[in-house]
Computed example of a mutant assay.
Amino acid sequence: MLDTVSDSSANAGTVSGPGVSPTNKPRRPRPGLSWLRVSGSVGPLGIATTVLWLSIIVLLPLAALTFHSFENGWSGFWDAVTAPAALDALRVTVLVSVVVAVVNVFMGTLIAWVLVRDDFPGKGIVNALIDLPFALPTIVASIVLLALYGPQSPVNIHLNATQPGLVVALAFVTLPFVVRSVQPVLIEVDLEVEQAAASLGADNWTTFRRIVLPTLAPAIISGGGLAFARAIGEYGSVVLIGGNIPRETQVASQYIQQQIEIDRPINAAAVSVALLAISFASLLVLRLLSDRAARKEQESR
Rank of each mutant, 00 (worst) to 15 (best):
V178R: 08
L191I: 02
E188N: 15
A197T: 02
G150E: 10
V193F: 09
N160V: 04
P154E: 00
V167T: 04
P164K: 12
H158N: 15
A202S: 14
A202P: 01
G165A: 04
A196V: 14
Q183Y: 13
L148S: 13
N160K: 09
A141W: 10
L166M: 04
Q163R: 15
V178W: 07
Q152K: 00
A171K: 07
R180H: 13
V167W: 04
V144G: 09
L191R: 14
G150N: 07
V179C: 08
E194K: 01
Y149I: 04
I157C: 02
A198S: 14
L186R: 09
V185Y: 05
P164C: 12
L166V: 06
N156R: 15
Q163A: 13
Q152A: 13
F172W: 12
I157Q: 06
E194S: 03
A141N: 07
A202K: 08
D203R: 13
Q163H: 02
D190K: 14
P154G: 11
Q195M: 09
P151V: 11
V182Q: 06
V167M: 04
L186T: 11
N160C: 00
P151K: 04
I157G: 01
V173P: 05
I187H: 13
H158R: 14
P164R: 12
L159E: 03
Q163D: 00
Q152H: 10
I143T: 10
A196K: 04
V185C: 07
W205F: 14
V179D: 05
A202T: 02
Q152R: 02
V179A: 08
W205P: 01
F172A: 08
T162N: 02
H158W: 05
V189D: 06
P176I: 03
V193D: 08
A169C: 07
Y149D: 01
V178C: 10
E192L: 11
L191K: 02
A147T: 12
Q163L: 10
A141K: 01
N204F: 03
P164T: 12
L148C: 07
V185P: 04
P184E: 11
I157A: 07
T162R: 03
E192C: 03
L146H: 09
Q195N: 14
Q163M: 14
S199C: 14
A147P: 00
L146K: 09
S142F: 08
T174D: 00
S199N: 15
V168D: 01
D203G: 15
T174N: 02
V185D: 05
Y149T: 06
E194T: 02
P176V: 05
P151R: 03
V185E: 10
N156C: 00
D190T: 06
V155G: 03
L170W: 07
S181Q: 14
L159T: 06
R180S: 14
I157F: 01
L145W: 09
T174L: 02
N204R: 15
S153W: 04
S199W: 06
V178T: 13
R180M: 12
V173T: 13
A169E: 02
P184M: 13
A198D: 04
A171I: 07
L170Y: 02
L159I: 11
L170R: 13
V144Q: 03
L159F: 03
E192A: 12
L166S: 04
T162M: 08
